[in-house]
Design a protein around this nucleic acid. Sequence first.
DNA 1: CGCGTTCTTGACTGCTTTCAAAGATGGTGG
DNA 2: CCACCATCTTTGAAAGCAGTCAAGAACGCG
Lengths: 266, 266
Amino acid sequence: VKGYKKRPAGLDWMSTRAEPESIPENAIARLGTLAPLTREGVSLLQDAARSPRRIAARHLIVEEGQPVAQRLIILSGWACRVRILNDGRRQILGFMLPGDLLGNCRQKMPVAVTTVMALTNMVVCAAPCQNAQGDETGLEEAFAISSALEEHYLFRSITRLGRLSALERLADWILEIHERLARCDGVVHSKLRVPLTQEVIADALGLTPVHVNRTLQALRRDEMLQMRGGLITLINEAKLASLIEYRAPIVTAAKAGPDGGNIADF
Amino acid sequence: VKGYKKRPAGLDWMSTRAEPESIPENAIARLGTLAPLTREGVSLLQDAARSPRRIAARHLIVEEGQPVAQRLIILSGWACRVRILNDGRRQILGFMLPGDLLGNCRQKMPVAVTTVMALTNMVVCAAPCQNAQGDETGLEEAFAISSALEEHYLFRSITRLGRLSALERLADWILEIHERLARCDGVVHSKLRVPLTQEVIADALGLTPVHVNRTLQALRRDEMLQMRGGLITLINEAKLASLIEYRAPIVTAAKAGPDGGNIADF
DNA sequence: CGCGTTCTTGACTGCTTTCAAAGATGGTGG
DNA sequence: CCACCATCTTTGAAAGCAGTCAAGAACGCG
């Protein structure tokens, strides 16, 4: 069937190539773009970021079936939700980038629905929780919108896997990553730092590494992008977007806050 | 690429064959299996169900990008989240069964992330909302767990579409539907009433109707199930389950309530 | 500079799609 | 009660996209 069934014995997930850490401030700023935060809300985040926790690449952050201890904010690095079948097939359910939340649940005694694994070295911190009622800081609203966005990306993944060709899947995925990195990472001149091997991309897109490779070559041949050493450069974003239907996610009707940031404007 | 690109002009979604309505009480009972409800919580649900609203098959219940007016409970009938590409390809993102919630959001001014369409004639009612703090009735907790379950099904869909073969997809999907119907519909002797055409199933599983047909025949030939007129009968559930890895969803660590019902025990 | 990982390439296989048309099925009206 | 019709299901043959296997090249790290 699809995907690698047999893997070498070792945990050959990806290179441990040292990744320059991105700026934690950008991760915090992402939450501010989701919902207007009060000065207090921002300082709560900054306080939390002063007690960072480091996680090494390939480590499991949460495991499926285990109780969720706390809500974390990713300050830098990439993680992914992953599910592994007993014959070795692997599906990456989604990526988690700086500014994204881990364990952002509603129920009282949450249990992790999927395993989450660090793809690179990471820095995380506890998400500040406040007096439940009120939410005067805007943090709860930001977390709620982050959760809605995550749901949006899940639906997008399903459509991608169910109805798009390999070329379309790649294009759609790259545009999604571009959009998300633009929120939390300094994306300049359409250059995206994507610290993933083609095998990881294949596991996310439901393809084989070999086919991801050939498809990426097609995108390069048609001059839509360049890529080298974990850096993807979008050359012709319009052409890339024309391969698929691009829609900016809108998950709330709230108008832009004082600082002008709003998901709907993205 | 995959799926039907061209469709006949009409909205040939599915037959309007009259479906006997399931029992609304079962829909309400489902919520009680998710979290222990107080007597007050149950009666709030029963009150709400006394003001039912009917929705005809094929009608859109919510539309992507439109604000979400209220939270609804499905009392009977099936709906689905759907996304349609501009060349006519269609992906069904998930099914919504009796006892499931619609518009179960956390943020303040939610906007629908996907279109939701009635697949059969439906009966719904407003979900009772209470004073936010406290949740003495257990309803908020039940809604939260319902939301976590929905997330679980999304991850399952992604794995299904990304890494399972056609045969495995069908097996996995049928077992999921079985599990869900068992919660809200009287499933007796492994007989499932599934009011879907093979084309709808194909749009959910990322296959073509023709291939769904052939794959279902394989399942019948190997004596795992029978099916006729919207009724699927599981003959050899163990054999069906052996095609895939089956895992019961566990989304909360809460122990069983007084009535013994808990998601973890399912 | 050497080694392991990752990327690239080629040839071949096969699952799934595509296209087309014939059979069932269920509801409706005569 | 039966004929009719739209919809849905089933079948066959052929084409195609993506997978599989294997080996060589390139890359990055120590």
